[in-house]
Design a protein around this nucleic acid. Structure first.
Lengths: 149, 149
DNA sequence: TTCAAAACATACATAGATGTCTACTTTTTA
DNA sequence: TAAAAAGTAGACATCTATGTATGTTTTGAA
């Protein structure tokens, strides 16, 4: 499990999605937010964000509606989405440094260190499992409330 | 703090250094092992390993002697070397994805997720702090004793 | 004093991951 | 039927980890 800017974009995008949904949702109807709107507010490149959300949909983290007035919506309550899910959905390690990215070792038979990467892998996963999208939202809102002087 | 194949090479290299030192050290004299010898036994590219060991020396993890019969030697007892030291000595995050590699966020003021990367960063460091070079050596020796049929 | 073997220093090459951009297709609503 | 959105595919650019090559300095021994 690697950690790239994709995960960062995903969290910021999901946070923005939540915010826009709540702003516009006066009468509690199901509403979709377009990628364009999210990227506009976050300065995340439009097309890259589209890719990311497409992957998040496949993982069941967001739902989408096509066509006019389509867009994305959160598929679950924020407290039900663990960050480990999000990161796992996005970060697909495919390069050759298996020992560090996958926590697996190419020289299985001789490598005296493979257990290290497995332990690190697990440590990352465990830490990410303790955090939910709700924590992100609360943290972001607290931060947003700090008015700059 | 990123994790690349450098860290992997370092651990395998240090393990090999320890082994060669003990094989050759019949009468407990200080003896140096050359990079050439280590890379020969581990299939780690010679010059790359040289770079890695040079960084390990700067971090005080190995000592070196120049000239003929020079080479490298462990600077401390294996149980005194935490893996967090080794990884920190090698993995210098310099790319632009500060939020994920350095645990710092470029958009400090608005990012609702920077605390996540700090926590992950810490989780990795904490896990690596619990493991020493001695653990690597013991694990490697156990593994080496398993005779393939 | 000379040679060989080693660390040390540095610059260069390259592949592959990563991120960005462009264009096109399909779907849906008004 | 037009507009706005997701979805899809692929080209392109860039960055950086990795590996290579070359040369310099140091040291011990013959």
């Amino acid at each position: 499990m690697s950690l790239t800017i994709k995960s960062c974009y995903a969290l910021r995008g999901l946070y923005e999605l939540y915010k826009l949904q709540n702003e516009q949702n006066q009468n509690n109807e199901k509403n979709y937010i377009s990628i364009f709107n999210i990227s506009e507010n976050t300065d995340i490149p439009n097309e890259f964000l589209a890719k990311i959300f497409s992957e998040l949909k496949r993982a069941g983290i967001v739902d989408s509606g096509r066509g006019k007035f389509g867009g994305f919506t959160l598929a679950k309550n924020p407290e039900e989405v663990k960050l480990s899910e999000i990161v796992e959905a996005l970060e697909v390690p495919l390069n050759s440094y298996d020992c560090v990215t996958k926590g697996e070792c190419v020289n299985q038979d001789t490598c005296p260190a493979d257990f290290v990467w497995r332990r690190v892998q697990k440590a990352i996963f465990d830490e990410l499992s303790k955090i939910t999208l709700k924590d992100i939202i609360e943290y972001g809102e607290r931060k947003g409330n700090v008015s700059p002087i």
